[in-house]
């Protein structure tokens, strides 16, 4: 069963590579494609007046201005390369879910108990977040920024030993182990979306392709991702604290990994506050998202260097 799990992990890696190639190819193809003559820019006054104060929205139009025509214009082609990239990503999610399930059946516990298992779960969280955001917000260019991170983590996971070790005494708390690490996977997974959106936001001024999402959209995507990351991080830290109080008799020990998680939480908290502080919106907020994901990565890898009570994870 463990071999099946590992094989599915490798298959996931292959699918992610294919998906990334598809997205990159689609991006390059879209950039070199001739602009569609009928796709004239049309300005529509919001509120019926373009006088001072009226917001304006620029959108692509098929010429007749009808919503149906615009939609069909944007949809075509129905199954372009990016569509396949999207499907490969969804396939990767299914395979990785299978990998985790196979490991669950092999070990008898949720696959969250060591560095290898969390690497795989982390990948699962990232792919899940990508699939969700792609489905929900239809911003496929995001995959070009996010898939390389997922691929790197998948490759890293593949280099680790997938041998299953029985749970040490501190980890023998199935409900808290499952919930604590599962929320971490969700939080970190959404974090990579915020990171991808922030990177694309920061790249926006340097990209001349009109298909690149507008900064406002990327800004909102980053925020939408943090709406998942921040509550999940909060719950994850609190569950960890509850667990630590049971297992170690301390709800907070300033252990390197838990402190790093707190730093991550503070950075995302700062981001949420930064969005309403003048002068911190836009680029600075985007940099905070990049910093937040760096903190996530640091939290994950940090215990390799700093030890502490999370040294097994």
């Amino acid at each position: 069963m463990l071999e099946i799990s590992q094989a599915l992990l490798l298959a996931t890696t292959v699918l992610v590579i294919i998906a990334l190639v598809a997205y990159v190819f689609a991006l390059v193809a879209a950039r070199v494609a001739k602009p569609q003559p009928a796709s004239a820019k049309m300005t529509v006054a919001v509120g019926g007046s373009s006088a001072a104060g009226a917001a304006e929205v620029t959108r692509a139009s098929s010429g007749d201005g009808s919503a149906a025509a615009q939609t069909s214009n944007h949809r075509a082609p129905a199954r372009g390369i990016a569509w396949y990239g999207s499907k490969f990503t969804q396939g990767a999610l299914i395979l990785l879910t299978g990998s985790l399930l196979a490991r669950f059946f092999a070990t008898g516990h949720a696959p969250f108990s060591n560095h290898y298992e969390f690497a795989v779960s982390f990948c699962w969280g990232m792919i899940l977040a990508l699939v969700y955001f792609e489905h929900r917000y239809r911003v496929r260019t995001l995959a070009v920024a996010v898939l390389p991170v997922i691929l790197a983590m998948l490759i890293y996971a593949s280099t680790l030993s997938y041998e299953a070790n029985p749970l040490m005494p501190a980890l023998q708390n199935s409900p808290l182990l499952t919930l604590h690490v599962f929320t971490a996977a969700l939080a970190y997974g959404a974090g990579v979306i915020a990171f991808g959106a922030a990177v694309m936001y920061l790249l926006s001024p340097h990209v001349r392709w009109s298909g690149w999402p507008k900064p406002d959209v990327l800004d909102e995507l980053g925020y939408k991702a943090v709406i998942i990351t921040f509550p999940m991080l909060t719950i994850m830290i609190i569950l960890g604290s509850v667990w630590a109080n049971i297992a170690w008799g301390r709800y907070w020990s300033w252990d390197p990994k838990e402190t790093a998680a707190l730093v991550t939480w503070l950075i995302y908290g700062a981001y949420l506050h930064a969005r309403v502080v003048g002068g911190w919106r836009g680029r600075r907020a985007a940099w905070l998202l990049v910093l937040g994901f760096a903190a996530i990565v640091f939290t994950y890898f940090g215990n390799l260097f700093f030890g502490g009570m999370h040294s097994y994870a």
């Binding site: 879209a30 939609t71 949809r75 199954r79 917000y137 496929r140 298909g211 690149w212 507008k214 959209v217």
Partner: peptide, 13 residues
């Protein structure tokens, strides 16, 4: 909508 291609949300909010 169906499956818009890359960059479909090029418009800002």
């Amino acid at each position: 909508a169906g499956s818009p291609e890359l960059g479909v949300i090029e418009q800002g909010l």
